[in-house]
Design a protein around this nucleic acid. Structure first.
Length: 513
RNA sequence: GCCCCCAUCGUCUAGAGGACUAGGACUCAGGCCUUUCAAGCCUGCAACAGGGGUUCGAAUCCCCUUGGGGGCGCCA
C-alpha cells in the first residue's frame, strides 16, 4: 500500500484556518478553509479557527463577523476557536503577544535573530535605491553587524527597533510541500525578515510558526502566495528546534478571465458580473450545499464520473495528495448549474422555507404572511425546476401576490395568443371566461381538459388558445404552468384577471379599429 | 529586474510508460419532448503548448523554450 492509496488511513490531523480580520471572506479563503476542514474531518482530527489580527492598521471591524458567518453558513464548524475556546487558547493573536516576544527573545539569545534599529525612512530610501539600480529589493542587514558597543548605545538612546531573523548567509533551505515535493532555496535569496514589529506585534512569519507549533497543528493548508516565504518559516522551525507541519500550498484561484489572482471585488468580464465575496453568494441565493460541492471540485476531484455528491461522501474520499497544484479559474457557469441541481432535488417544503427571506425582501411582504400563504405551497413546486438561484423566484411569482387590479399589462401583446389576431384573442378570452365560471372542480386537470376541448372546437391550436390566459393571469409571456397557476390563484382571482384582460383588449380594439 | 510554482477541450477536471480512437462535467450547437419558460433525454463541436531526449513504446519520465501564475513591506 502506497502513501497515495486512497484507502490509506491517516492519523488524526489538526488543521486550522487563520483568517485576518482585514476584509470580508471571499471564495479563495473559503476554499482554503473548506479543504482544511475536510482534511480534519477525513482523518477524524480537529479543525481550529485562529484569528490573525496583528495588523492594527488594516483592521476592519465587522470583517471577523463576516468570516465567521460565512464559515457557519457552509457549516464548516470548528473544534477550537476564539468564540468557543479550547486547550490551546487564546485563539486570537493579539492576545498572545507575550508569547511571541518570549520566542523572539529566545531567538536573539540563540543568535538566530537580532534587533534592528533602522528607520522606515532608511528602509524606504534603500528600497528606492535598489529599484533604481534594478537590484532585488531587500534589507541590507545593516544592523546585523552592529558591535556590542553600538548596540548598547542604541539601546541607551531608547531607539525603537524591530527584531529580524538572521538568515544563514550561505547554504540552502529545503521546504517540503506535500504537492510539489522538496523545494530548495538558496539562502542568499532570503531576507532577514522582520519577526517582531516596533509596536511589539509579531509579523505573520513569527506568529504563524509559533502558533502552529504551540497549537500542535499537523497540516498547514494555505494559499500558494505563501510558498516564497515558506523557507523563512522552515528556518524558524530549525532555529527553534521544532518539527515543521506538513505544508500544503493550495493553488491560487484565478479570476474568471483566467488572468490574475481573483480579487476580493466582484469582477465584470464580457458584461457578466462575477461575485467574489461569500456574503454576495449568500445574498444571490446560492445554496451552501451547492457551493460546498462546487468548491470541492476545484483543485481536487471527487470522482471523474460524478459531479454531485454529499458532504459526507466528500469527507470520506478527500485526499490531500490528490490536490492538483495548478492555478484554477472558477467555473461559475458550473456553479449556476449545480445550484439548480440542488434546488431541484430539494424537498418543496424546504425550498419554500429557504425562499421566504428572498421573496419577502423582493416582494415587500412580511415573511410570516408568506409562510402562511397556501398559494405559495402550490406555486413553489411549479418554479422548482425553473430557477437556479433563490433570488430568481420573485420574478416568477410576483404576479400572484398583487391584486387583479394592480396587475399591469404593460405590453398589450401579452394578451395575444401566438398567431392570433386581437379579435381572435378576445374571443378566446371570452370563451375561457365562460369555462372558468362553470368548471368543476377548479383544478388544473379539469380546467385544462375544458380548455383543450374549447380550443379544438374553435379550430385553434391549444398553445395559441392558452396564451391570452397566461398574459391575463400574470401579465407576462413566460410564466409557471398555466393551469396549476390558475388552481393556485383560485377561481375568483382568475376570473377577475380574465375580465380585466378582456376589457384591456376591448379598449385596444376601439382605439385602433 | 530577481526568485519560485504551474501547464490535458473555452472552463473545472480524469489520466501514475502499453487498457487513449485521450474519459466525465459545465458552456455552446442541433434534435426529441412540450402549454410559455424550464427541466429531462439523445447527438455533436472541442484538448495533451512547442522542441529535444530516455524507452520497443511517452499525455505520463528528463532537459530546453514558450506561456500562465505567485512572491520580492515593521500586510497577511
Amino acid at each position: 500500500m502506497t502513501a497515495q492509496d486512497p484507502n490509506h488511513s491517516h492519523p488524526p490531523a489538526r488543521t486550522r484556518f487563520a483568517p485576518s480580520p482585514t476584509g470580508y471572506l471571499h471564495l479563495g479563503g473559503l476554499r482554503t478553509a473548506l479543504f482544511s476542514w475536510l482534511w480534519a474531518r477525513h482523518t477524524g482530527g480537529q479543525f481550529i479557527l485562529r484569528v490573525e489580527d496583528t495588523d492594527r492598521r488594516r483592521y476592519v471591524p465587522d470583517s471577523l463577523d463576516d468570516i465567521l458567518q460565512g464559515l457557519r453558513w457552509l457549516e464548516l464548524h470548528w473544534d477550537e476557536g476564539p468564540d468557543i475556546g479550547g486547550p490551546y487558547g487564546p485563539y486570537v493573536q493579539s492576545q498572545r503577544t507575550a508569547l511571541y516576544r518570549e520566542h523572539a527573545e529566545q531567538l536573539i539569545a540563540s543568535g538566530h535573530a537580532y534587533r534592528c534599529y533602522c528607520t522606515p525612512e532608511r528602509l524606504a530610501a534603500l528600497r528606492e535605491e535598489q529599484q533604481r539600480r534594478g537590484e532585488r529589493t531587500g534589507y541590507d542587514r545593516h544592523c546585523r553587524s552592529l558591535s556590542p558597543e553600538e548596540r548598547a548605545a542604541k539601546e541607551a538612546q531608547g531607539l525603537p527597533h524591530v527584531v529580524r531573523l538572521a538568515v544563514p548567509l550561505e547554504g540552502t533551505t529545503t521546504v517540503h510541500d506535500l504537492l510539489r515535493g522538496p523545494i530548495v532555496t538558496d539562502n542568499r535569496q532570503l531576507e532577514d525578515a522582520v519577526l517582531l514589529k516596533s509596536d511589539g506585534m509579531p509579523t505573520y512569519h513569527l506568529a504563524v510558526v509559533v502558533d502552529d507549533h504551540l497549537m500542535a497543528i499537523t497540516h498547514v493548508l494555505r494559499g500558494q502566495e505563501w510558498l516564497p516565504s515558506a523557507p523563512l518559516h522552515q528556518l524558524l522551525y530549525d532555529a527553534f528546534g521544532w518539527e515543521p507541519p506538513v505544508w500544503v500550498h493550495l493553488p491560487v484561484i484565478l479570476d474568471p478571465s483566467g488572468r490574475g489572482k481573483m480579487s476580493k471585488r466582484r469582477k465584470v468580464v464580457d458584461g457578466k458580473e462575477y461575485l467574489a465575496l461569500v456574503r454576495e453568494f449568500m445574498e444571490a441565493g446560492y445554496l451552501p450545499e451547492a457551493l460546498f460541492n462546487f468548491l470541492v471540485n476545484v483543485g481536487w476531484n471527487f470522482d471523474p464520473e460524478r459531479e454531485v455528491f454529499t458532504r459526507e461522501e466528500a469527507i470520506q474520499r478527500f485526499e490531500l495528495q490528490e490536490i492538483h497544484p495548478a492555478p484554477a479559474a472558477l467555473p461559475y457557469e458550473k456553479l449556476e448549474w449545480l445550484n439548480g441541481v440542488y434546488i431541484r432535488q430539494m424537498d418543496p417544503t424546504e425550498l419554500k422555507r429557504r425562499l421566504l427571506p428572498f421573496l419577502s425582501r423582493q416582494l415587500g411582504i412580511p415573511e410570516e404572511d408568506l409562510a402562511g400563504d397556501s398559494r405559495l405551497d402550490r406555486l413553489v413546486p411549479l418554479i422548482q425546476e425553473r430557477i437556479k438561484r433563490l433570488d430568481e423566484a420573485a420574478p416568477w411569482l410576483d404576479w400572484a401576490f398583487v391584486d387583479a387590479d394592480a396587475l399591469p399589462y404593460e405590453s398589450p401583446n401579452v394578451l395575444l395568443g401566438r398567431k392570433l389576431s386581437p379579435e381572435q384573442s378576445l374571443a378566446v378570452l371570452r370563451k375561457g371566461h365562460e369555462i372558468l365560471q362553470q368548471v368543476e372542480p377548479f383544478q388544473a386537470d379539469a380546467i385544462q381538459a375544458a380548455f383543450r376541448a374549447a380550443a379544438q372546437e374553435m379550430g385553434i391550436k391549444a398553445g395559441s388558445f392558452f396564451g391570452p390566459f397566461r398574459g391575463a393571469l400574470t401579465g407576462k409571456r413566460v410564466s409557471p404552468p398555466l393551469f396549476e397557476s390558475m388552481e393556485a390563484l383560485g377561481r375568483e382571482q382568475v376570473l377577475r384577471r380574465v375580465e380585466r384582460a378582456i376589457q384591456a383588449l376591448e379598449a385596444q380594439l376601439q382605439r385602433t379599429p
